[in-house]
């Protein structure tokens, strides 16, 4: 039986293989052309196969060489941070920058276990005022300050 000796290498290898296979699969309809007349599929397909090759080598090392373990991934920080980014995208056109900022700051602050409501309220108001002032009035970025434009 093969023994996994370097989980990081194996994981990385699998990701690379997946990307390469996806590149070949989704690129199969692109014209490959020939060397003198490279089609849109020529370079991507070559790169995809290279990616698969690298994935195989790196993944193979996972069985051959000892390596560090994959660190445990705490789910709380990453989930809340990602949620905050998505919330911004969905809220900004609906309720404007001021309220979106408040929402984002609350979600982002929840990424820490020690969530303090009072502190977060103050922080949210300060950052919201700063963002609206700097980005909308100062730099006229293309986003509404409030709902309904």
């Amino acid at each position: 039986m093969l023994r996994i000796r370097s989980p990081q290498d194996l994981g990385a290898g699998l990701v690379f293989i997946a990307i390469g296979v996806a590149g070949v699969y989704f690129g199969q309809d692109l014209t490959y052309g020939s060397s003198s007349r490279m089609g849109p599929g020529y370079f991507p397909i070559i790169l995809s196969y290279l990616t698969i090759m690298m994935g195989l080598i790196i993944g193979g090392r996972g069985f051959a060489l000892d390596g560090p373990p994959i660190q445990r991934i705490p789910l709380r920080p990453i989930s809340f941070v990602i949620l905050a980014i998505l919330a911004f995208g969905f809220l900004i056109e609906q309720i404007g920058l001021a309220l979106t900022t408040v929402a984002v700051i609350f979600i982002a602050s929840a990424a820490r276990k020690q969530f303090n409501v009072k502190e977060t309220v103050v922080l949210a108001i300060v950052v919201a005022a700063l963002c609206v002032g700097v980005f909308i009035y100062g730099l006229s970025q293309p986003m509404p300050a409030w709902w309904g434009r």
Binding site: G89, F90, I92, V104, Q141, P142
Partner: peptide, 23 residues
């Protein structure tokens, strides 16, 4: 960090005001 995060998303949204950019 919440403020940094906020500046980051505004930065992305500022160049291309589109929810797909956030995704």
């Amino acid at each position: 960090y919440p403020a940094i995060l906020m500046f980051c998303v505004i930065g992305v949204y500022g160049t291309n005001a589109n929810a797909v950019m956030m995704i």
